[in-house]
């Protein structure tokens, strides 16, 4: 999976680069509109991660330009502005998703994988991990060929774990992934535990392996040896 990161904050770009490289992405970084355009002109990328505010222009200009020639590439907009107008404009111009800063890297990873799945895996929307099989088209989970009866949140939680397997996910990151804008209503993230408990129970009851482990104090991790 080739990704072009367009972000002018060098530290952050390197951070993302490190994280995504570990996830198996092939990453390149551009810090300006000009650099990004020359790279996009010369190479093919599967995904474009685009910051909107760049020193030499607006990321939306790159998006406009890119969408004229390359419609196969998935685009994720990063924005610090968190302005509805930018979001709407970006999505109308053909971006696949919009992620406001600050974000958890696990969230970035999950969003990128989702875009990639939607764009590239024509026909096959099945993710396999250990004995779990997720059909992202039908939103169905099979364990040992047995269909799991999951709530929407449990499904999203499992997908989030598998996409970020072997990584520690903080309760906060999980809570934000599941509840997004409504997180303000919560006075603690303890309820994340309830969901995880239910999910583990459903998986083990179907005879699946309990791959979710609690990392003391920090969060949870889905362990996969594959």
């Amino acid at each position: 999976m080739k990704v072009l990161l367009v972000e002018d904050h060098i530290e952050l770009a390197q951070n993302m680069h490190t994280y995504l490289s570990k996830e198996g992405y092939v990453c390149e970084v551009s810090a300006s509109t000009e650099q990004a355009m020359s790279k996009l002109g010369g190479f093919d990328y599967d995904l474009l991660v685009l910051d909107l505010m760049l020193p030499d222009g607006n990321g939306l200009d790159i998006l406009r330009w890119v969408k004229q020639t390359n419609t196969k590439m998935g685009v994720l907009i990063l924005s610090a502005k968190n302005s509805l107008q930018d979001k709407i404009e970006g999505l109308e111009l053909g971006a696949d998703d919009y992620l406001p800063k600050p974000f958890h890297f696990a969230e970035l990873n999950a969003r990128l994988k989702a875009i990639f799945r939607r764009r590239q895996l024509q026909g096959s929307n099945v993710i396999l991990c250990e004995d779990i099989q997720i059909d992202t088209e039908k939103h169905e989970v099979m364990v040992n060929q047995q269909l799991l009866d999951l709530t929407r949140k449990e499904y999203e939680l499992l997908l989030y774990f598998i996409v970020n397997k072997n990584r520690v996910l903080t309760k906060q990151s999980i809570a934000e992934h599941l509840w997004g804008d409504y997180i303000d209503a919560l006075d603690s993230f303890d309820f994340v535990y309830q969901h995880i408990k239910n999910l583990r129970k459903k998986i083990t009851e179907a005879g699946g392996k309990d791959a979710i482990t609690t990392m003391y104090g920090s969060g949870y991790k889905f362990i996969s040896t594959q």
Partner: peptide
């Protein structure tokens, strides 16, 4: 907002790498 959120994302990312 922009100037604040980007370094924050960076800091959060670094800490998450540390945790990971």
């Amino acid at each position: 907002s922009h100037e604040m959120q980007t370094p924050l994302t960076n800091a959060i990312g670094k800490l998450e790498l540390l945790l990971a």
